[in-house]
Nucleic acid binder design. Structure first.
Lengths: 192, 192
DNA sequence: AACTACCTGAGACAAAAGTCACAAAATACG
DNA sequence: CGTATTTTGTGACTTTTGTCTCAGGTAGTT
């Protein structure tokens, strides 16, 4: 990875955990860097997920095929990690597909290699745990959106808390992420 | 804790991770057992959460106060763990209240003591990580309920996948957990 | 510039869910 | 056992959202 990316990632992670520069180095030593094009799929529904992915550039879209229609469950932007944990953990077929929303640069971390790293480096296992904590907190907040707010409130939440989604994802794609029809979201946007 | 509980917990955890009986012993050595009455609050919105809680008997209800109305975000039954991770992790005020739904027996694990255990026992840190994985997967499934299903579908999901909630929680309490009005859930139940 | 594919906005109508009010039923508790 | 309190069911009505359809817009490609 580039020194610049390393620095950015370091800043990102340092807020998350106490990992050292040498820890970041060890971590990325087992990573596989890859360029993917817009629309390219890195995990397909039905396949078994074998790695965790870090996004350096571009973004990934995670979705479930429900009766032939895509339902978006997540968007992963620069300096964030994603995977299908259920599949990764138990080696069962993934219920989601992960696809590049733009041409992207990613790093793939193989599960087995990560587990080996965990064994020899408490620092990296700690990092793994804290990453999970972060993901869980984000997921809880996302769930609460549906319990606390109406569709309008959910959209406003994204506007103030996840501006990247509003700015970079099309209205149609956002609608399933918020659990509403495309037309409803269009009306919400019209209102302001 | 009783030998019986220890055995049950062990069975529960063994499915989750490879923790040994000695690991379970080490873990519960730092736990504080407590009886709480129905309605008793163990974490109040605004307080800083300092521990993880394991439920041996009874159940806990986690909710957010929204304009004076309780919105239930979680129910924790026997042999499961709960906490407010956002508050626990960053020592910031909790946005949820955790309350006993029935008279309950719980074990409280102090955060600092757990972190110390993590340092000396890779087995327990591994357990902590796998517990987080489990919680994250459950949370993801819960979020997807709102994206994939209508209120009726969500209720049916609980019937087949979380029967404990249907059996032990009142309809009014379930309604906010599913993000619908009480009357709507009553009509769903009527339909079957 | 023309072609294509995709995305957005808008209207009309149907369906679903929310709200309010009150009665009936179940539960808790003295 | 009876009373008080909480919970649930129901109807009438309003508001919101979904669905279907089509027109116009935008972006990328050749």
């Amino acid at each position: 990875m580039t020194d610049n990316t390393k620095t950015l990632l370091y800043k990102k992670i340092i807020g998350l955990t106490e990992i050292t520069q040498s820890g970041v180095d060890k971590l990325f030593a087992v990573a596989c860097k890859r360029q993917i094009f817009k629309g390219e799929i890195i995990l397909k529904q039905g396949q078994i997920c074998r790695n965790i992915v870090f996004v350096e550039k571009g973004y990934l879209r995670t979705f479930i095929d429900k009766d032939g229609v895509d339902i978006n469950t997540d968007f992963t932007f620069e300096d964030n990690f994603t995977t299908n944990l259920k599949s990764l953990r138990s080696s069962i077929p993934s219920d989601t597909t992960i696809q590049a929303g733009e041409t992207a640069t990613i790093y793939e971390f193989d599960k087995e290699e990560l587990l080996n790293l965990y064994k020899v480096s408490p620092e990296i296992e700690s990092f793994g745990r804290k990453l999970l904590e972060q993901l869980l907190i984000t997921q809880e907040e996302h769930t609460n959106l549906f319990k606390l707010f109406t569709p309008t409130g959910r959209y406003h939440f994204l506007q103030t808390n996840k501006p990247q989604i509003i700015q970079r994802i099309s209205l149609s794609q956002i609608s399933s992420y918020l659990g509403v029809a495309r037309e409803t979201l269009s009306r919400i946007r019209k209102k302001g």
